[in-house]
Amino acid sequence: MSRAFWNILLKDIKTYYLKPPNISWGIIFPVSWTLMFFIRSGGAVDIRGILPGVMALSVLFGTTSMLAVTITFERRQRSFERLLVAPISLNQLMLAKTTGAIIFGVLYAFVPVLFAAFLIDLSGINWFFTFISVLLIAVTSTFLGLFVAVSVSEVFEAQTFSNFFRFPMVFLCGLFIPLHNLPVFLRPLSYLLPLTYGADMLKFSINHAGSIPVWLSILVLVAYGAGLFLFSTYNIQKKWID
């Protein structure tokens, strides 16, 4: 990777990701989700049971909302043009602009794990697959955020459009409502969503409870990530260098 790549990444981390609102988001989000389950279940919450869901959602919401800033906002400010006319290939540029979100997405995922470690026994977790699952969820949701950022021109549009993907995913990915409890007509939709596969992998790694073969999940997530990235860079070529 070129010097430009590392410096774009470092600049984003310094100016966006390490800012207090982002840091506190990473902490408040998992805490409030856990609290919500706590209240709903009347005090007897199975922390280990909801851990995969809280992790996956921390990543999903953390990454997709960040790209609205690092890309949509910079485009409004026109500083993004500076990057487009720099002697760096579009692929490297977009990787540089998304890697920060991926790194912080992974970090966000482990915040709830840290909290859980104080409350319950975490033995028996396959940490290697947990990490792979989190990484793949971070990559696909970041590139989903990129896809959204490329399709809109205002920051508020990016947020609205993201929710259009995010909220259905929360309910259809099988984390909170098991897939076999979903109405039959919604199930095909579930299998179209990348988070379904990421969540299943996480359930497998943490609670040995997955229902989709791991290799298939990895394959689907990698394909999703690559597809979204290629589609986005193609779109940038077409729309932003117009």
């Binding site: 010097r3 590392w6 774009i8």
Partner: peptide, 22 residues
């Protein structure tokens, strides 16, 4: 169209890095 949050100096250093300068 430089970066509002960065100082003048940081802006220039960042732009230089886009051209692979050490």
């Amino acid at each position: 169209n430089l970066y509002n949050e960065l100082s003048g100096f940081e802006n220039l250093v960042f732009c230089a890095s886009l051209y692979e300068m050490g």
